[in-house]
Design a protein around this nucleic acid. Structure first.
Lengths: 213, 213
DNA sequence: ATATTGTTGTGATTTTTTTCACAGATTTCG
DNA sequence: CGAAATCTGTGAAAAAAATCACAACAATAT
């Protein structure tokens, strides 16, 4: 395999292409050009082609990409067929909203456990999942072979939770706490930092690009 | 004003520095070096200095940055003193969780309106905010001078909502719908695409970096 | 058949972002 | 005080990512 290193930004765009191409396939569109693919995503045609190019050549000169074929290839590249077990830590407002989120299954993710420290919550069910104690987390994660952990606890406890998760063998973390997590190199973390997003927007509102001290 | 163009990534890191420096100031630490600042954030010292360098020079050779001073400067740069009005559109699980989120005030954001299309919800209160009809949205946004809109509706309706928002004068959008929004150039959008985050992680779980077709 | 048009794949170029590296300033220590 | 250690600010270099530009090929029109 000619393993060129693929930029993470490319991977991330691939999902957008897959979405789009799925949409197009529902509309029974046969073919699509790189320009069309990029258009509504505000991406240049060259960008699209380069991204796809990392994975071999499945376009047809002169007529673009065959929608169904592209969809299938992207699906395969992006491992949309595999499934993994997931745990949520923290069942506050955000954690609960996530438990109710229907998108997990679509991504091949089985939400099989939820944890909290609040004794009033432990034992209760939420969206068909029983809330268990964080103190039992390590064992349960190992037992259920959970590979992906979602952290939805306050910043203060986030690093501790991350430590337990990685210790128990979790490979990826989706972190909602506004706190940078230090984890072993082989563990992949993605941050969803709501606080920072709001701050960024607030910054743009306040500065409209120009900076004054 | 020597308006060098400042990378958005820099701005985004500035918030992390501010967080850190706020923490340090609570610990009564007097000074901090670029190396220390970057350390727990996995950022190099040079990166930190360069980021701060965009806004003038407020470090002291040989001894680093004065914590309180840096905190204040960052605060100022990042417009942490100004406040703006915010509306949430969509009061499902996610929207409700957001309404309950306490972080808005901290960012100087006043959550002053919530909208939904569901007639059963309209008129009810959620976290002290009355849910109003999307059909009245345009007027209310203008009237309350709302500059930031948060979209927490399904992908299908997201573009329509974005259109109404921008039309009513909203300057920034925080978009939770898994859909790319087309908006006028002067409007700033930030996407929080949960679906894509999960997909990305799922990809890493499945591929552990290497790609096979 | 041949010309024309449309579109891919990719090397080259440009732009953006990060990292390096070091002069010059400050503090500390003997 | 003078030497050694610590840091910043920043130009230069490197790395990463996006964009350009064009040869090669396919489809369509004449």
């Amino acid at each position: 395999m000619p393993v060129k290193k693929i930029p993470e930004t490319t991977i991330s765009r691939l999902f957008l292409y897959l979405r789009k191409v799925t949409e197009l396939s529902k509309l029974s569109m046969k073919r699509v050009s790189s320009a069309e693919l990029g258009e509504s995503l505000n991406l240049g045609a060259a960008q699209v082609r380069k991204d796809l190019g990392y994975f071999g050549q499945f376009g047809v000169s002169g007529s673009g990409y065959v929608v169904t074929e592209l969809k299938e290839k992207l699906s395969k590249i992006l491992s949309k067929h595999k499934t993994f077990n997931v745990a949520i830590v923290g069942t506050g407002h955000l954690g609960s909203a996530l438990l109710a989120y229907s998108g997990f299954e679509k991504q091949g993710l089985n939400l099989v456990a939820a944890f909290d420290t609040d004794v009033n919550k432990i034992g209760k069910q939420l969206q068909g999942v029983e809330i268990e104690s964080v103190s039992d987390m390590k064992d349960i994660i190992k037992e259920k072979k959970i590979l992906l952990g979602i952290i939805a606890v306050p910043a203060k406890g986030a690093q501790d939770v991350a430590d337990i998760l990685t210790n128990a063998g979790v490979k990826c973390i989706l972190n909602f706490a506004p706190k940078h997590l230090n984890v072993p190199e082989e563990v992949k973390v993605r941050d969803v930092d709501l606080s920072r997003e709001l701050e960024m927007l607030s910054y743009f509102l306040g500065n409209g690009k120009k900076v004054k001290l």
